[in-house]
Nucleic acid binder design. Structure first.
Length: 592
RNA sequence: GCGCUCGUAGCUCAGUUGGAUAGAGCAACGGCCUUCGAAGCCGUGUGUCGAAGGUUCGACUCCUUCCGGGCGCACCA
């Protein structure tokens, strides 16, 4: 049976090591041929790719680039290179085929498979060392304390968590940090509404989760402000009281912040999100203020006639930017300056990644520039990982108009759908805890859904159709894991004497090659801070596995040795899937 | 106006530092459960890769211009 996945691993699949070995050998041959023929030209290193069809070989090297210098057709050149390689006993091993203008190589995969098999059974499988020794801080989530999490936060949290795990898998020392936006006039709005309209209820007495309760008052404020033109001024007044340390205001603030934070914590826990450290804007904004005054003293910033402190952004082709208001109070950017400095003092990092929506690209450009002006050489190691908006079919989510997709509610609905699915399939009796399984299915579905799209792209969330449990979805992937687990559980022999040379089917070869490329996918995904690469990889690997599984007898193969070899392949697949799922945020399920 | 970003099948998205006939999932229709889990597998697609130029042996990919969507350019966060 022919594998029909031409798109499968068109990409950088064969591991980089094998590819570069062949590239070197071919390059050497070309260079030698050139000098023998007295050809003087800039000869580029060859382009190595993967042929579109498995029968064309495992590696393809394009000869087009040399055609001109040699005045020879690419195919003739390929033949000449083949002669040279075959005459040289030190050439890498493989069968060379000439196809069109390409020199293709068909590899013996048994050694590779054996190596993978050994690795799959050792601790730390699925990790690389490309970022070993690097200290990387990742900031994400950063909620306000006036409302619960919504779908936009979920994309942020999924990306942030996944990138942190990716970096860790590549050997980096990673620290996840959150920044709680707990001060400012918007926070005062829900407090004010609570003061005016509540009868002293709290989460316990109302039975409403804290973040949702506070969010209700934020909405109440918005409605009230429509009627009463003094509402905004009253909120501003409350902010001034807060900044002055008015005990009553601070007490209310502490109380309501606590409710929200408890609620957010509960949501994080349900979504499997965690942080190594929390920062609070209420604690860092003063430091930012001090640093700006220091900068002013150093002459980096200027005080304008009206008393405000500004920075001239002409060197980066932008206007002036206010850093301290004329009344001396701080702004958003003031706080971020303080927070960044505090973080570097806490934990000197090599890189700090801010996972923040793309609408704030300008803000971070300015922030990084200012930190550089202040003389922090680590400013150049700051990186804004911008991601696109999540739209609904009818447009953008708007908190004030109530068109947000609430995170808790979404997770609840998905869990319910998953449980329904379990019941429909009559699996409830087979599971230890169907409700917990349903929850994990829901988590896998949402994380995979949010991560399979390139971060930079805006995406549309269609609640009705988008989160299917079939096809290219989290649950599909989990299902692969469950089937593999099931096979390994049923296999009664030992895997000693595993013989990879028996794995000769096209699908088996495809799987081995794909497995070998896993570390490269991880590195690339981590390097570009792009979880979608890893998502695409696991999905395509799942598809070949599924195809192979459907057509191939594993436990009852023709011979016991062949069964052993195939079960061994299943083991490698399972370990690779487990590793990838963990990084993406798809809970691994032995049964579902 | 300036800047950033995106534009690939009805919908949601992939597309390897330019490479061999542009791919998946969903939706639709039709097959496959007395064989390792059917959340599965197989089949059915006339896409101006937003448009036009350019560079190249070769362009969805790079450059230029234009068109369209989104975001930003606050003493808001």
């Amino acid at each position: 049976m022919l594998a029909k996945f031409p798109s499968l691993f068109d990409g950088d699949v064969m591991n980089a090591e094998t590819k570069s070995k062949w590239a070197d050998a071919v390059y050497q041959a070309i260079v030698t041929m050139a000098s023998q023929a007295n050809i003087e030209a800039d000869l580029p290193r060859p382009v190595v790719l993967t042929p579109p069809k498995p029968e064309l070989g495992d590696i393809a090297i394009a000869m087009f680039a040399y055609s001109k210098a040699f005045h020879k057709a690419p195919a003739a050149l390929a033949s000449a290179v083949r002669e040279a390689l075959m005459a040289d006993p030190s050439s890498p091993k493989g069968e060379i085929l000439i196809e069109g203008g390409y020199l293709n190589v068909r590899l013996g995969l048994a050694d590779l498979a054996m190596q993978l098999f050994t690795q799959a059974r050792t601790e730390g499988f699925g990790h690389t060392s490309s970022l070993k020794g690097r200290r990387i801080m990742v900031e994400f989530s950063c909620p306000n304390t006036n409302k619960p999490l919504h779908l936009g936060h979920m994309r942020n949290d999924s990306i942030g968590s996944c990138v942190a795990r990716l970096l860790k898998a590549c050997g980096a020392d990673v620290r996840k940090v959150n920044l709680i936006n707990n001060r400012g006039v918007h926070i005062c709005k829900s407090m004010l509404a609570y003061q005016k309209f509540s009868k002293g209820e709290d989460p316990a007495s109302s039975g409403i989760k804290g973040d949702h309760l506070v969010g209700e008052y934020y909405v109440k404020f918005a409605n009230w402000a429509k009627e009463d033109p003094t509402a905004e001024a009253q909120a501003q007044e409350m902010l001034e009281k807060w900044e002055a340390g008015d005990p009553e205001t601070i007490a209310l603030w502490t109380r309501m912040n606590g409710w929200t934070l408890d609620g957010l914590e509960e949501s994080y826990k349900a979504m499997g999100i965690s942080f190594d450290k929390y920062y609070y804007e209420s604690n860092t904004y003063k430091l930012g203020k001090d640093k700006i005054l220091e900068g002013l003293a150093k002459g980096v910033f200027t005080r304008e006639e009206d008393g405000s402190v500004q920075v001239d952004l002409a060197p980066i082709k932008l206007d002036k930017k206010v850093l301290l208001r004329r009344d001396g109070t701080s702004l958003y950017i003031t706080q971020d300056i303080g927070t960044a400095i505090a973080r570097h003092e806490d934990w000197p990092f090599d890189t700090l990644i801010y996972v923040v929506a793309s609408e704030q690209i300008y803000h971070f450009k300015v922030l990084f520039y200012i930190l550089g002006l202040l003389g922090f050489d680590w400013a150049k190691s700051l990186y804004h990982l911008a991601y696109g908006m999540v739209y609904l079919p009818d447009g953008r989510m708007k908190s004030r108009e109530g068109t947000v997709v609430d995170a808790d509610e979404l997770l609840r609905q998905l869990t319910e759908m998953a449980l329904e699915e379990i019941r429909k399939k009559d699996r409830e009796g087979e599971l230890d805890d169907a409700a917990r399984t349903a929850h994990y299915v829901a988590l896998g579905a949402i994380n995979y859904y949010l991560l399979q799209v390139n971060p930079m792209r805006d995406m549309t969330f269609n609640p009705a159709e988008s989160l299917s449990f079939t096809g290219n979805s989290g649950p599909y992937l989990q299902y692969m894991g469950a089937r593999l687990s099931s096979i390994l559980k049923r296999y009664e022999g030992s895997l000693d004497g595993f013989d990879p040379s028996l794995l000769t089917l096209d699908d088996e070869r495809s799987i081995i090659k794909a497995l070998a490329s896993y570390p490269d996918v991880l590195d690339k995904s981590a390097e570009s801070y792009d979880p979608s690469l890893l998502c695409t990889y696991v999905f395509e690997l799942s598809k070949v596995f599924s195809h192979w599984y459907h057509d191939t007898q594993i436990l009852k193969a023709e011979t016991a040795e062949l069964s052993k070899a195939r079960v061994g392949l299943c083991l490698m697949l399972l370990e690779t899937f487990k590793s990838a799922y963990e990084i993406i945020g798809i809970p691994f399920l032995e049964e579902m």
